[in-house]
Amino acid sequence: MNWHTLLFYLFALMSCGFAIAVVASSNVVRMAFFLIVSLASTAGLFFLAGAHFVGAMQIMIYVGGTLVLLIFGVMLTAHAAFVSMVTKSSDWVLAAVFGGALLGLLALTAFSVEDWRVARGDQAAVTSSEGEFASSIGQALMGMRVDRLSEGNSQLEAGMSGYLLPFEIIAIHLLVVLIGAAYLARTKRRVGSVTEGVQ
């Protein structure tokens, strides 16, 4: 067993285990914590798969940004009564049945293709030279597929123009979402609401 395999199992175990813990826990803050660990371990998996930039991005935005927001939201709304909401046991049974079925299906699919199951032999040669560099990702986002240059011909040129349009769309989308979220979170306070809570 080489260290890649070892680390893969470590991270896979952590991300799956804590994902299950998220489902099993009924305390929102603990759920958020488990989610953090689960997503951070997933970032580890990304690093193992050679996607360094995506891994760092996962930590930075997903774990760092989204979850801080989430915990912030939890704390803002964390009245003791809402921190833990217990699920009915009948819901659990239903969820377990359907979830189990779905998992079985997906697992079967995952191992059904020979090419997917068998790992590439010459891994060591690959990791150090390809796919780890952010510049190719950046250039793809700017509309240039440098990794596809070798296959460049007139038919593929359209495909080589990269992701400039989606990138721009997402940029605008993010801006809109930011403004929208800020607007949505505002409430005009009703007169009298200051005193109504505690007394």
Binding site: T77, A185, T195
Partner: peptide, 22 residues
């Protein structure tokens, strides 16, 4: 002592959260 709701500064803060006695 009743709280003055019409205090401009209270209304300005517009994300409402839980009140706390500290």
């Amino acid at each position: 002592m009743a709280t003055q709701i019409d205090d401009q500064r209270i209304i300005e803060f517009d994300v409402r959260t839980d009140e706390m006695l500290v």
